[in-house]
Amino acid sequence: MRRRRRRRSNVHFVTEIELMPMLNVFISIIPLLLLSAAFVPVTVIKTTLPTGEVVSAPADQAPLDVAVVVQPQAFVVRVDGAVVQAVPRSKADDPDARGQLEVVLKTVADAHPGHREVRIVSEASTRYEEIVEVMDVARAAGLPEAALADASTEAF
């Protein structure tokens, strides 16, 4: 009796939660989530179809036509067919030219408040990445609705 009491008062019980089942669940869930998790954030750009014989332009109220022609040596900004400015670029990935193009497009957007569309006129061999870049520049300049067009069907 004495012994028993002494043990009770002295022994400090170490309570331990049974963690193994939880660990098992975690170990099976985590690889599953890791496998299906998307670490690369994929987003989208909504666009309209290329002009030409595909879409008939809504020409009833003669909307303003802002176009960026992507050429190997320059970006040419046209408003209703008239060249506003040609931004020369030395190479495909030219940050200066992009900045300049944004300034030009911003001027156009400010001059026509409420106008949101821009046509991106590309040549057959223009790289997709460049088109997406021009879309980004146009969006930053306040013309978020980009439509794609083909340079060979454009009448310049």
């Binding site: 879409v55 040549e123 061999s125 790289r127 997406v132």
Partner: peptide, 20 residues
């Protein structure tokens, strides 16, 4: 989902076909 190096004419054809 287009590769960044594809050319516009491929994109145009695919978009046209989708539209049609």
């Amino acid at each position: 989902q287009g590769d960044r190096d594809i050319e516009f004419r491929v994109l145009q054809k695919v978009m046209y076909t989708l539209g049609q």
